[in-house]
């Protein structure tokens, strides 16, 4: 294990706006590191600084042992990057896109191209224009392109937005296979559920890295209490009751039911009692697994 990414107080301001605010973290070889945060929280800006695409205002970073400001070209050669927009040329076919980027990276062996195409499952689609591909397949072609030169580190910026769950799972299987071979992967997402796929997750909000740990540890540490799904009628009145109940740290609407986060001492009976006393009809109070969204709300609030 060695350190592949080292970010030390990385900061980037655009005028008055601080996009990334003193972010420090490390990533080790073979890790699948998630970077979770809403749009505009500074995820893409962080990746761009790590690739030397934009300069940090403050702080420094090393990627694959190279300084991001001074050794940009050498570090880029060892990194693969899949940007948010899937950098594909719509006028070109699958094969033409692949050979174009391969040529740019100086990869000329046809065997390597075929192998890469097979890896992402696009064999037989060589002559398809990329416009005709569904988003799941565009995503995989973009991954093939990012990996054509066999980098040791992959940056994936929002790789699965809008693709269907089945395609997303297949995509993650590809990522895990890479990690197994020792490729380090840094993947950003605004999608709370997706962060569950990562070995460790960093939570970004308004340019700040609030926490970084395994999903299980995040849940255990950031939410020392318990999470509950409360099914009660009427919904809005129940919400008001929960918000006023001692020991409830957060209550919110969640579709046809309520979600509550409580301190460790609070149990089912306490919640039933509080709701019952207010004259609310309670159908069920279930203890549930906290989600990363609960963690995010706890850290942000």
């Amino acid at each position: 294990m060695s350190t592949v990414i080292l970010a030390d107080n990385l900061t980037r301001r655009f005028g008055d706006f601080t996009a990334v605010d003193h972010v420090s973290f490390e990533a080790q070889t073979g890790e699948v590191l998630g970077y979770l945060g809403p749009n505009g929280s500074g995820k893409t800006t962080t990746i761009r600084m790590l690739l030397g695409l934009i300069r940090p205002t403050e702080g420094r970073a090393e990627v694959m042992g190279f300084d991001v400001q001074h050794d940009t070209e050498r570090l880029r050669r060892q990194c693969g990057y899949m940007s948010q927009k899937f950098a594909l040329y719509d006028e070109l076919t699958v094969w033409e896109n692949l050979t174009f980027y391969a040529g740019v990276y100086g990869v000329n062996e046809r065997a390597r191209l075929n192998e890469t195409l097979k890896w992402v499952g696009l064999v037989g689609q060589e002559k398809t224009r990329t416009t005709a591909l569904s988003s799941g397949w565009r995503q995989r072609l973009a991954l093939a392109i990012a990996f054509i030169h066999r980098p040791r580190l992959l940056f994936l910026d929002e790789p699965t937005s809008g693709v269907d769950p089945t395609a997303r799972r297949m995509f993650w299987d590809l990522i895990y296979a890479l990690a197994e071979e020792g490729v380090t992967v840094l993947v950003t997402t605004h999608y709370m559920d997706e962060a569950e796929y990562c070995g460790r997750v960093g939570i970004m909000r308004a340019g700040k890295l609030l926490a970084m740990d395994t999903p299980s540890n995040l849940k255990a540490k950031a939410l020392p209490g318990r999470a509950w799904d409360v099914f009660a009628e009427p919904l809005l009145k129940s919400l008001a009751v929960l918000e006023a109940t001692p020991g409830v740290t957060r209550a919110g609407l969640s579709g046809d039911h309520l979600r509550a986060i409580t301190l460790p001492g609070v149990d089912v009976n306490a919640l039933h009692a509080a709701l019952g006393a207010a004259g609310v009809t309670v159908a069920a109070v279930d203890a549930v697994e906290p989600s990363l969204e609960d963690v995010f709300l706890a850290l942000a609030g």
Binding site: P38, M192, P234, G252, A300, G301
Partner: peptide, 21 residues
């Protein structure tokens, strides 16, 4: 609420639920 801050999303959904209620 794609890509929206979960706090904002929470607010937004409260509004929608109030609207239908």
């Amino acid at each position: 609420t794609t890509g929206v801050d979960p706090l904002t999303r929470q607010d937004f959904w409260q509004l929608i639920i109030r609207l239908v209620s």
